[in-house]
């Protein structure tokens, strides 16, 4: 009998299975075009930031380089916020620069999501400008860097006004592991507990949480939000082996609290590029044994639907 070593077995079993299962046969062109062609949908990345990270020069910090990188991995659209929104006070110009950068260097891929800080004066005007002048589809909040909680009275007012305008509201719960912050920066952990109650009175709000799976934000927060709201999540920090399919099935490894499945319709692709490697989020879709329908939904269709409601 011919013996098969483990390596040959691994190669053979997976490759033959893959050849049978791929909906479109792999072609050389798909490979040579560095991901531009080939089976599967293009990607809508809902969590990208442009500009300069406050404490480090980032590898794809030039927008053209970032866009080329995203194109290589078949991103067709990226919702872009600005790192300047974290610490700058002049949101008028932060958002103007973001729009100009998307237009000038975005190659038709970048969709600007402006920053609004609801605890600073005249934020309503920032919101109006984002919608009426810049024609944005959504806004991005950075409570942990702008130093407010969801319990501040202007937060529900902002959510309501954004909903009336049909704007998506993205709330970034984390940007960076607090253990590696610059020692002069203190961005506290985000408490998501008030969100479910806030949203009860705003049924048409379209809220997406970015980077919300870090354990510090608590499994109970997520369970409550999954069950009693329609908020969406991005996958940028959905950790653990097979985290995507295990979240869909409601069986995370951590096993704390009551397991609650997260409907696939509420999971959106988000990379947190350019801070994180784009491949991190992309590989999550391959690490999990998800179906083509689930892949398509997360990679593109769920984001399209969220946009389409606007």
């Amino acid at each position: 009998m011919k013996t098969i070593n483990r390596r040959s077995f691994l190669k053979g079993s997976l490759l033959s299975a893959a050849a049978l299962s791929f909906p479109v046969q792999r072609s050389e062109s798909a490979v040579s075009a560095a991901g531009r062609a080939g089976p599967g949908p293009g990607i809508i990345d809902t969590n990208v930031h442009l500009g300069a990270w406050p404490t480090r020069r980032l590898k794809y910090g030039e927008t053209k380089a970032l866009v080329a990188k995203l194109r290589k991995h078949r991103v067709e659209q990226a919702w872009a916020g600005s790192f300047e929104g974290l610490l700058h006070k002049n949101m008028l110009e932060v958002n103007e620069r973001l729009v100009a950068e998307c237009r000038t260097n975005g190659d038709g891929m970048l969709v600007p999501f402006g920053s609004v800080n609801p605890v600073w004066p005249d934020w309503e005007e920032d919101l109006r400008l984002c919608h009426e002048v810049h024609k944005m589809r959504g806004i991005r909040l950075h409570p942990t860097y702008q130093n407010y909680t969801l319990e501040r009275p202007d937060v529900p007012r902002l959510l309501r006004m954004a909903a009336e305008r049909g704007l998506i509201v993205q709330i970034t719960t984390f940007m960076e592991d607090p253990r590696v912050h610059h020692s002069n920066l203190l961005a506290p952990e985000m408490n998501l507990d008030p969100l479910a109650n806030l949203l009860m009175g705003i049924p048409n709000a379209k809220v997406q949480l970015l980077h919300a799976f870090r354990s510090g934000s608590g499994p109970n927060n997520r369970q409550g939000l999954i069950e009693s709201t329609n908020v969406s999540f991005d996958i940028s920090n959905l950790e653990s082996n097979g985290g995507v399919h295990r979240m869909i099935e409601g069986r995370p490894w951590e096993g704390r609290g009551r397991p609650v499945p997260l409907p696939v319709e509420r999971i959106l692709f988000g990379s947190h590029a350019l801070y994180m490697p784009f491949e991190n989020a992309l590989l999550k879709l391959f690490e999990s044994p998800i179906t083509t329908a689930q892949f398509d939904a997360i990679a593109r269709n769920n984001a399209r639907r969220l946009l389409g409601r606007t």
């Binding site: 490759l15 893959a18 798909a30 490979v31 560095a34 399919h245 391959f286 044994p289 892949f295």
Partner: peptide, 19 residues
């Protein structure tokens, strides 16, 4: 749950193939 199958080839997304 079939761990031997991928929804699409990794290389179609600019990643190294499994091989």
């Amino acid at each position: 749950m079939n761990f031997d199958q991928f929804a699409y080839p990794l290389e179609a997304y600019g990643l190294p193939s499994r091989e």
